[in-house]
Every structure is written in C-alpha cells, then in structure tokens.
Simulated assay, not measured.
Amino acid sequence: MSTSIVIADDHPLMLRGLSDFLSSKGYSILGKAEDGQSAYNLIIKHKPDIAILDIRMPYLTGLEVAEQCQKHKLDTRVILITFDNEEALFDKAKEFNVYGYILKEFAIEEIEICIDHVTKKEKYFSEEIASYLNSKIKYSNAHIKELLTKTELKIVKQLSKNKSNQEIANTLQSSIRTIEKHRSNIVKKLKLQKSHNALMLWANLNKDLF
C-alpha cells in the first residue's frame, strides 16, 4: 500500500509541483491545502501517514499544525519544508516531534529520501542543517577566537554576509584556492558536515560570535 500524504503550501506553484512529482512517484495524495487551518482539517479528516507542510502559511503555520498534531496525539508524521534556517525554528520542530525538515531549494531532490526515512519512523533533516541539529555545539566568542586564526575569522565573517569564495578572495587579496583551503580547515575545526552550505549556514546562525 502506498504512503498516504497531505500537502500544504501557500505558494500554488510549489504546491502543484510537489503534488505532481509525488503522484508521479506513486504516492497517494489525499489532499492539498494553501493554508495551515485547511491542512489541519485535512489531517483530521483523512488521517494520512505523512503531512508535508510549509512552515509559513496563513491561519496556522506548519509548526502550529505540528504542535496540534502532537497535542492531540495524531499518528500523522509531519515533514516541514521551508526557506528558513533560523535556530529557533529547528528547536521548535524538534519540540513538536517533527519527523522531517527540508530546505525548499532541495525539496524535490530530498523529499523521496525524507519520506522513505519518515515511513520507517526515522527522522530526516536536510544535510545543510543536520550538522546543527545533530551536534548542537555552543561556542563562546572567546572560544571561537581561540579555535580559528585571524584569517579564518575574517572568512567566516564574510560568509555570514553570504559572500562567495570569489568575493572573499577579492576582499582578502587572496586566491580562491587559498580561501577553499581555509574553508576546509574551518569545517574540520568546527566539526561540521562537509556539505557545500554547512559552513555558510553555521556562519549565519552564529553571527554574534564574530
């Protein structure tokens, strides 16, 4: 029997794209909604295996729907899709027993892997945020200055402003290869995953440290 799913997103194109993609893969789409309250009503009505919800929606957010599901002990497992990489949202997602958390730019690439995990009652989070969720290491300002060299600190500061390797190389009057080498060293020192965006995400989450 195929996995039953309810999908909610207030962006019609995203909603249709995800629905069409999952239908083509053989999943059973029981309902679609463009706001959180409608999504919650569909969950109550159809009791799907999985609900794939946008975090930011009218009436109820994806997190609020997840909270209601947890509060009323519903069996539906929630997967959140979002553009947000805010620390507080990750913590809320874990608090409300969310099973999956995917960044929207990777939704189509990762959704099947995520559903496969969630169907087996295994939690799945986008690689870009997994390093934060799985090893939530809190650094102090002093610790970071001790851990990273002055050049590495400059690079992390530039990354927190979403600068590319080329822009950082220009600013620091260095080569791209040197910047890449520094980035690799920083990832090792911070014990981050080696995914492309992990360091930039970490820099954005920890702007107050440098």
Rank of each mutant, 00 (worst) to 15 (best):
K104L: 08
F90H: 02
T149F: 13
G100E: 07
Y27A: 01
V78A: 11
D35S: 03
K154N: 12
E87G: 06
L103P: 01
N141T: 15
Q68G: 04
N185C: 02
E128T: 15
K163P: 03
I155D: 05
A8Q: 01
E86R: 12
L89F: 01
Q37I: 04
K188W: 03
E95A: 14
D9N: 07
E167W: 13
P48R: 04
G17T: 00
V98C: 12
K47H: 13
I113W: 02
E122Q: 15
V65K: 00
V118K: 02
E110L: 13
I81R: 02
L18E: 03
N97H: 15
L15P: 04
D208S: 14
R56P: 02
I168N: 02
I50G: 05
K25C: 05
S195V: 07
K157W: 01
S140E: 02
I113N: 09
T61G: 10
L18D: 04
K207P: 00
L53N: 10
R77I: 03
R183D: 00
L147D: 09
K94L: 14
I52W: 07
P12G: 04
Q173A: 08
G36L: 06
K104D: 05
L190C: 00
D35A: 06
Q158A: 15
L205A: 08
A142C: 14
L53H: 07
Q37L: 14
L53A: 07
F125H: 09
K25W: 04
E112A: 08
V78N: 04
Y139P: 11
I50Y: 13
L159I: 15
E87A: 11
E128I: 09
S24I: 03
G100A: 11
N206K: 06
K163Y: 14
T178C: 05
E167R: 12
T171G: 05
D9L: 04
L199Q: 02
K121Q: 10
T61W: 05
S4V: 01
N165K: 06
K123F: 13
L60P: 02
H46D: 12
Q166S: 12
D35L: 03
S23E: 10
